[in-house]
């Protein structure tokens, strides 16, 4: 899921200081799991805004805020509340914010969260990055552990000289990705997977902006 983090409230207030009334839009998927855009967070945002003398015209938690057409349909009953507001605050990820921008071209839209990374919830409210969305997966060659993501340098051929008792030179809280990969492949007897030199990565699979059509081509 997309891990989001609540922005500093003062920073947010700085961004929206010229507006008086707001519609709040959350998301029931990642942002809810992250505690940044579900019902409780919308409630506390409403209270915080009202304490600052602002007005909340309405709110809604979209089922999947990055699903543009679905969100459009879901928001139909909130037409009036949205049009009464000076701007929309989106309490999900950057994709959710941009859904809202696409649906409401004439309305200012502000994110209340920072989008951090694609990761897993490993324990309640603890998130770890797992994937860099590089466009060409190499997990099949690295024991299912992604060095592009788990190694701060994204190394493809083994640990750097900074590896230290299984920890990373960046900080002891980070496990050395290449020690993890090595140990896992040793355990499953597949060390030969990393014996050959990995060539420089083809980053053209990651040209911005990316788009994909998963529709099946109609046969003519």
């Amino acid at each position: 899921m997309i891990i989001t983090k609540k922005r500093d409230f003062k920073e947010l207030m700085g961004n929206i200081k010229n507006y008086k009334s707001f519609f709040l839009l959350g998301c029931s998927e990642c942002a809810t799991l992250c505690g940044t855009g579900g019902d409780p967070e919308i409630k506390s945002m409403k209270e915080a805004l009202e304490a600052e003398g602002k007005n909340v015209t309405g709110s809604f938690v979209a089922k999947t805020g990055c699903q543009v057409l679905g969100t459009k349909v879901e928001l139909k009953p909130f037409k009036d509340a949205i049009s009464e507001s000076d701007c929309i605050l989106v309490m999900s990820c950057g994709a959710g914010t941009q859904t809202t921008v696409e649906l409401f071209e004439d309305k200012p839209v502000y994110p209340t969260n920072d989008s951090m990374f694609l990761g897993n919830m490993t324990r309640m409210q603890i998130f770890d990055e797992r994937c860099s969305l590089c466009g060409k997966c190499i997990l099949d060659k690295t024991g299912g552990i992604c060095p592009i993501t788990a190694c701060p340098k994204g190394l493809l051929n083994g640990p750097c000289g900074g590896t230290n008792d299984g920890k990373c030179e960046i900080g002891p809280e980070i496990e050395c990705a290449w020690v993890r990969i090595y140990n896992r492949l040793k355990r499953i007897d597949k060390l030969e997977d990393i014996k050959n030199t990995a060539e420089p990565k083809d980053w053209s699979a990651h040209k911005k902006p990316m788009s994909l059509s998963a529709r099946e081509k109609k046969s003519s």
Binding site: G154, L156, G158, P200
Partner: peptide, 12 residues
């Protein structure tokens, strides 16, 4: 940080 390539690849 760049790290488009790394030491082994730079040698190559």
């Amino acid at each position: 940080p760049v790290y488009d390539v790394e030491s082994v690849q730079l040698l190559g």
